[in-house]
Every structure is written in C-alpha cells, then in structure tokens.
Design a binder for these strands. Structure first.
Length: 901
DNA sequence: GAGTTTGAAACT
DNA sequence: CAGTTTCAAACTC
C-alpha cells in the first residue's frame, strides 16, 4: 500500500509541475488507479472513485485529487488507526506527506503565493510537527473557512463584493476560489501527507471532492467559513494555536486575494475558453457527489486505505494545466452554483439539504452531516451577504461563527428537518453541491476523528463533548454490541457512516459494509418508515419565529429527567417538548410540553441562562446560538434561511434600504411558492434578495446574540404551535417576521403597506400555507391562528426596528412591489389572499392547493402570517392539501417523512 | 475511568 | 399496544 500510494501521490501531486506525460494521460491515471493496491475494501473507494478513475479528467485537477487523496487516504489510514495501526498509518502518512508535500510545494509555488504557508506546514510535517502542522492546515482551512470568520469574511467580502456585481463577481470569486482552493489543496495535501490525524482534518476541509474542493472550496469558500467554523472547533480540539491560525489565515487570505486578482482574470478566461469542460466538470461534480454519496466520507475514512490510493491514482493523471482547467470549470460551476446558489444559497441553504444526497440510502439522515455544511454555508453566506449589501458587522460574522458552531449540534436535527423541507428545485442542484459539502463535513468529522485518534488511537472512547459532534455529523458513537447497525448508534441513526473518531466496536456502519448497512436500514425503515427521518422537525413557521419552533418528531418520554437533561431528546436537541411528548413533569427549558409557544423569552432565556450557568460560557453562547440555531439553523438549514428574525431584516433594511427589496424577495423567495406566486418579480430580485436575506440572517444572529426580540418570536411561534411542517414555512416564517413588524406598524395605517407586503406574500403564502400545513396540518392551522399575535408582538418588541424596516420595506415595496401587491396590501390581507400578484385570484385554499403543490411552505408561512391579518383565513383545508402539494419540498423526503409522521 | 442512571430502541 | 429487555449515552462519583 505504502509504496504504491506514495508513488501515486507523488504522481498526483507532481503532475502539476513534474508529472510525466504518462501520468498526465488519463489512461495512465486510470491504470495507476487500477494498479494501486486493490483496496481491501474496494467498495468505498470503488464506489466513490470508480467513476473518478473512469473519468480521470474530472479528478484531473491535482489539487482536487490531492484533496481527495488526503481525504480518502485519511480515511483508509483511519481504518488502520482504528485497527491500532496508527503508527503505520502515521508513517505512511508521513511518507505520503513527503511526497505530496513536494508536489504541494510545486503546486503551491507555481500557483500560489501562499505556498509559504504550505511549506511551513510541510516543514512541520514531522510526526509531532504533523499535528501542529495539521493544526496549521486546519488553521488555514479554518481561516479560509468560517472559523476565521473575519478573515473568511474578508475573503467572502472580496469575493462577494466582486460577485455582487454579478457574473463578473462570480468570476472573481472563481479566481479567488481557485486560489483558495489551491491553498486548501495545499493544506489538504499536507494533511494527506500528514498522518491520519491530519487527514481527517484535511478531509474535513477538502475531502469532499477534489474537484469540488476547488470550486466548492471557492463557493464553499464562503460556505467553508461555516465549515471553517466547525473546523475551527475541531482545530481547537486539535493542537492548533488560534493565533497561528489567524495569522496563517490572514496570510493565506492575502495570498488568495492577491492571487485572486490575477487568477480571476485567468480563471474567467479559462472558463470562457473551456465552458464545455466546465460542463463536464459539473458532470463530474455530480458524479463525484454521487460517489461521495455512495461512499460517505466517514465510511471511506474508516477503512479504505486502498480507496485512497485509488483516488490518488485517479488524480495523478491530470496535468497541472488540466487541473487548472478543471478548477476553472469547477469554479465556473461553482460560480454558477454559487452565483445562483449563493444568493439562493440560502437557497444555498436549501442546497445544504444536499447532504441528503450524500447518503444514498444511508445518508438520508446525513442531513446531520449536511447540517454542518449548511451551517458553514449559511454562515459564510451570511458573511458574504453582509459584506455585499449589509456591510454587516464583523461581530455579526463572529456571532454567526459561533452560531455555526453551536448550530452544529442543534442544526443536525433541525437541519435535517429543514433540509428535507427546503428542498426545492433549486436545491437539487445545490444538493450536488451539497454533497461536497457533506464531504467537507465528513472531512471535519475526519478532523475530529483525527483529534481523537491522536488522543487515543486504541481506545477512543470518545467523550462526546457537547460540541463534540463532528461537523460532518459523525456522532462518534461508542457502540459495542449493535455493530452500529441499529438506531442505538447515533451515526447509523443519522444515516452517516461511522468515522475513525467513533469508538465503536465491530462496526459495520462503514462503506465497506454498505450493503449491510443499507439492508439494515431498510429493515428498520420497514418497521418504522420514520426511523431515519429527522427526529427534530422544525415547525417552519414556528421555527422561524422561535428556536423552540423545532420539535421532536416523536417527542420524548422522559420520566425522571424532567426533560432537563440530555437524556431527553428534546432537550438534547435544544427544542421544546411538544404535545407529542409523553414526558412527566416536563420542564424543558426550550419549551414545555403543552406550551408550544409558551416558551417565553424570559423563560427561555432564563432557563437557558440557567443551563448556561451550569455550562461553560461557551456553552452559553452555544445555547443562545442553539436557540438561534433551533430557529436559525432550521432556517439556515432549510435553505429557506428565512431571515431569522424580522428585526434583523428590518435592521438590514434600515441599513440598506435598497436591500429591503431583497428582503421582500427573500420572503417571496420561498423556493416553490415564491416561484409560483411572485415569480417574476422575485426572480428579478431574488439574487439580491437572497443576499440581503443572508445578511439579514447575519444581522439576526447578531441580534439574537444581543438577545433581541428573537425570543419574542419564539414565544409567539411557540404559541403558534408545533408544526411538523418544515421548510416551506420557513420561508414564510421569515416573511412573516418581516411582516409582523409591518403589521405592527400596520396595526395601523401602515398596515396597508405592510399588508401589501404580507398580502403580497400572502397571496402566495396563503395558498402555500395550507399546503405546507398539509404537511403539518395541525401546525398550520395553529399557526394561522397564532400568527396574528406573534405579528403584533414582534411588532411590539421590534417596533422600532420593525418600523424602520417596515418603512424601508414599504418603500421598497412601493418601489419594487408590484402595484398589484400594493393594492392588495392596501386592500387587505384577507383580500389579498387572492393574490396581489395577480397571479392568483383564486381563493386561498385553491391557491394553497395549487401553489402548495409546487410551492414551498415558506411562502405559505408568510401567507399564514398574513392570514393573521386576515383572521378569516381558512388555512386548515389548504393545509391538508398541502402535504401532497409539497412535491418540491417533498423531495426533501426526510422532511416529508418527519412531517408526515 | 468505572459505575450508575436514564430513556430510546428493540423485542416479545 | 403494552410491557420488557437491550442498548448506548448521559451522568455521577
């Protein structure tokens, strides 16, 4: 293994600079892939890589390859490590490192100015140094990623700024991204070279897809920030020195920036010249994603050393030029995706749902994994948004970062739900992207695993630190008897393969045993179709408003813990107990059984604070974040990324009046519904809107941190009731939030304007709502009724902001809002149901059915909100229909399942 | 780190 | 569906 691997790696890396023509040839690469040791368990590698090998070009980019190599290698090594072979693995890793390092150096030097970092890393690559080195890479990643939020922000800012303009910006981003990717690759390479410990990290950072890495990295770059955040955690765990990270990150950034400047043009040219390639690459991307899906990162990590080799092999063939092209193509794709997605990103966030894809079958729950990515993505996006339109405060970014971290834990559940929910047509593409994200997650997991490995290779009993959950979603299970093939296993339950970090014994939840895993899953699902569905469903509507909006699908059954300990799944998920809970003496801080909404701000805060008091300060932050996460994460996750809190958006609007339209669009944005209802108008504005939304989210996060009306919403939402419904509403919820402020204003005359908006949204939403409700008929109904109060409250709480926001919105509305909407608004929410947009005049119900089918719940939620205004709104019937209707979101099978439940 | 407690999952 | 057992995590010491 070693010998072949090393040569391969070298070949891979070398291609850029030294690669012999033979290596460059795809055939060679293919052969090399074949030649490499046949992975003991070819399954993983084979699954993931067969495609790769066959289409070497896709993987051509050395960087990418390297990345994959690292990730894959890491995993394989892990298996070794798992088998107490760490020493070997490390040695191998070192060997690899040596080889790759050189290549890396070449590459980096050639391509990057940031090489210095890589070199440093290389120098550090010595066994112990490796860890540090790894840490450095991590740092790099982190810095690149969200962790070094600020730096990331900077990058994102740059990229986004450039992007904001539009395609040009995307080009710039590509360039930057490519650059970024390079550094990342370097890191990865170093990681790959590095022993298993590093690998995981690398994997986390890069593993996803080499190809993707490039682009994704780019695109992710922004997202990566989020990741970075996760990674940061990991990094933190790992022996990384924050300062070093920052420095590195900064340096790196600088390099990237500089390079980006030059590369941008190049990249853009590249793209232009080889659009076809880009397409191919995209295809490759998809493939890769699929592959990844097939072979979840964790799985690969665990026991496929051979797979790594394969990967390497596949990679080597590509020449540097090819690699660059690939990168470019990816970048282009990423741009497209990003460009499209970024704004959408939120949309993008929906893409985040992508994680689903990861798990062919298994990864349905991989949402969890996705979550981290999502988080990262969201955070990054947020940052970007801020940079772009909002000029959000860096602090917010930091906050977001914290949130991202916090979110990790919570988001998994919530995200899962959200992701499924949010799925929209757009999401599909994103999903592809998401797969890479997942990989990254896996990478992050790997990182965690790496840490663990470092800590204790033999017995890894992982101590689940509260935040220990791997960003990848790996739960670090410790199963001893179930072989990780039962729901007892968190990893298995989450639809994720166990990772090296796991301390499980006799684990079958690995790619090698994919068949077994799938079979087992099927069996379990046969018994309980919802067994793998996200346990935590965010009531989209509720969720948006309150963190507590999320609820445990099945509810807890606590008897003694009073839902105040992690024994309680609800509590563990930072969600309130719902009527579905069978707990006794529920004292769930996030919401007691029976009072969905009841979680009062004060209560939640106090409760949380109490918890926090017990917990560390960080935990407190997390708690807050988690709450936010509950909401925000869901939101983020949902892709809907409904603006967390109206207030934020409001503030945003205030800050950037021009953005306000975006907000509106965001509201509208609900994937489906928006499209259907507001479509044209929104479409024009969506991108901007999304950005604004993201920024708004960021702002919201910051606000949340500040402890703003966030809770207020929660209360209201909680009151609204728990809805199983997910994503669709999310969108709506944000909208609602915005609306609410307006409503406040409106409570009066302003209402007209606000109503117009709400109506405007409502027109669609109303219809949507029913549908979304269809998923959660109950919630929807409740929601409809409750929304009113929340609105008012929100307005009350956030009046100032709301007012401004409203004004801004109103202005925007007036400006951007179709006159129809205005009219509608003027008319009333109730009336509006018909649809201001013109599109729908049909009664809400009908619309609901219609729209609901195609539209997402988000709009619905917003509409629901409107409904508030229009008490008459008969949400119920529509809701029932909604279930069926949510085809788009239904695509988010998980969510649907959860909802259906 | 070992042992206990807890509640979910699995089983009957 | 209810009750019991098994399991792994959370928690305590």
């Amino acid at each position: 293994m070693d010998s072949p691997e090393i040569p391969k790696i070298i070949a891979n890396t070398s291609p850029s600079s030294d690669s012999p023509p033979v290596q460059e040839s795809p055939v060679f690469s293919y052969i090399s892939n074949l030649s490499p040791i046949q992975p003991v368990k070819a399954s993983h590698a084979a699954q993931g890589f067969p495609g790769l090998s066959s289409p070497p070009l896709v993987f051509t980019s050395p960087r990418i390859n390297t990345l994959r190599e690292t990730s894959f290698l890491k995993r394989p090594q892990y298996p070794q490590l798992a088998s107490a072979e760490k020493p070997k693995a490390q040695d191998e890793a070192k060997k690899f490192v040596d080889g790759p390092v050189d290549s890396k150096k070449h590459i980096t030097q050639l391509q990057m100015g940031s090489i210095t970092d890589s070199q440093d890393c290389e120098t550090n690559s010595s066994s112990e140094g490796v860890d540090e080195y790894l840490a450095d890479p991590m740092e790099m990643d982190c810095t690149n990623s969200a962790q070094s939020v600020n730096p990331c922000l900077k990058e994102s800012k740059i990229s986004y700024k450039s992007e904001a303009p539009s395609e040009q910006a995307t080009e710039d981003l590509l360039g930057k991204q490519t650059f970024v990717a390079k550094p990342v690759k370097i890191k990865e390479l170093s990681h790959g070279a590095m022993p298993s410990s590093e690998r995981p990290k690398v994997g986390s950072g890069i593993s996803v897809d080499n190809a993707f890495n490039g682009e994704y990295h780019h695109g992710l770059h922004n997202q990566s920030q989020g990741f970075g955040g996760e990674h940061q955690d990991d990094c933190d765990h790992s022996p990384q020195s924050p300062p070093g990270r920052l420095q590195i990150g900064q340096v790196y950034e600088d390099c990237t920036e500089n390079v980006g400047g030059t590369s941008k043009g190049i990249i853009g040219n590249m793209i232009l010249h080889a659009p076809n390639k880009v397409k191919n690459d995209q295809g490759g991307m998809h493939r890769r994603c699929l592959q990844f899906e097939e072979a979840p990162p964790c799985a690969t990590g665990k026991r496929d050393s051979s797979s790594i080799e394969k990967v390497n092999n596949s990679e080597p063939p590509a020449s540097t030029a090819e690699l660059e092209i690939v990168k470019v193509s990816y970048a282009a794709t990423s741009k497209r995706q990003m460009g499209a997605s970024l704004p959408p990103l939120y949309g993008g966030s929906s893409p985040l749902t992508v994680p689903k894809p990861s798990g062919i079958g298994l990864h349905l729950n991989s949402i969890v994994n996705a979550v981290p990515f999502v988080r990262g993505a969201t955070t990054s996006i947020k940052l970007a948004d801020h940079d772009i339109g909002l000029q959000v405060m860096k602090s917010s970014a930091v906050v977001s970062h914290h949130l991202s971290e916090n979110v990790r834990d919570d988001t998994e559940t919530s995200i899962a739900g959200s992701s499924s929910i949010t799925q929209s047509p757009h999401t599909v593409e994103f999903e592809h992207l998401g797969s890479p994200l997942e990989e990254r997650k896996s990478d992050s997991q790997n990182v965690d695993s790496y840490k663990e490995l470092n800590q204790s290779s033999s017995q890894k009993k992982r101590k689940r630190t509260p935040s220990s959950k791997d960003s990848d979603g790996c739960k670090r299970c410790n199963c001893k008897k179930t072989k990780c093939l039962k729901l007892y296993c968190d990893c298995f339950a989450a639809g994720v393969y166990c990772a090296e970090t796991c301390a499980c014994q006799g684990c079958f939840n690995i790619p090698d045993y994919e068949d077994t895993v799938l079979e087992t899953r099927q069996q379990i699902e046969a018994r309980n179709p919802l067994a793998f569905a996200p346990k935590i469903v965010q009531l989209e509507e509720e969720i948006q408003f309150t963190p507590a909006s999320a609820r445990h699908k099945r509810g807890c059954n606590c008897k003694k813990s009073m839902c105040l300990k992690k024994y309680c799944e609800c509590y563990q998920a930072n969600v309130g107990c719902s009527s579905g809970c069978r707990c006794d003496g529920c004292k769930n801080v996030y919401g007691r059984k029976g009072d969905y909404g009841p979680i009062d701000h004060g209560v939640t805060k106090d409760m949380i604070s109490d918890k926090a008091g017990k917990e560390t300060f960080d935990e407190k932050l997390e708690m807050v974040a988690t709450k936010k996460d509950a909401l925000s994460t869901e939101l983020y996750d949902s892709h809907n990324h409904t603006p967390l809190t109206p207030s934020f958006q409001c503030s945003d609007h205030v800050d950037n009046v021009p953005k306000s339209p975006c907000l509106l669009t965001s509201y509208l944005r609900s994937p489906e519904s928006d499209l259907t209802v507001i479509s044209s108008y929104e479409k024009s504005t969506r991108s901007s809107l999304r950005n604004s939304e993201t920024s708004g989210i960021l702002l919201e996060t910051s606000k949340e941190l500040s402890g703003m009306g966030y809770y207020c919403w929660q209360e209201d939402y909680d009151n609204i009731g728990i809805a199983d419904t997910f994503s669709p509403r999310y969108d709506a919820a944000p909208i609602i939030c915005h609306i609410t402020p307006l409503s406040d204003l409106c409570s009066k005359a302003s209402a007209s304007s606000t109503s117009s908006r709400s109506d405007w949204k409502n027109a669609s939403q109303v219809q949507l709502c029913p549908e979304s409700q269809g998923l959660s008929s109950n919630s929807s109904l409740r929601w409809c009724s409750s929304p009113l109060t929340p609105m008012t409250r929100l307005g009350g709480t956030e009046c100032s902001q709301g007012l401004d926001f409203d004004h801004g919105l109103s202005d925007i509305m007036q400006e951007e809002m179709p006159e129809i909407l205005k009219d509608i608004s003027a008319t009333n929410k109730s009336v509006k149901v018909s649809s201001p947009n013109k599109k729908r005049v049909s009664p809400p119900h009908n619309h609901n059915h219609e729209l609901g089918a195609s539209s997402s719940g988000s709009l619905r939620s917003g509409r629901k909100f409107i409904l508030k205004a229009v008490p008459s709104f008969p949400p119920l019937t529509p809701c029932s229909s909604s279930k069926g209707s949510n085809t788009i979101q239904s695509t988010g099978n998980l969510h649907d399942k959860g909802r259906k439940k």
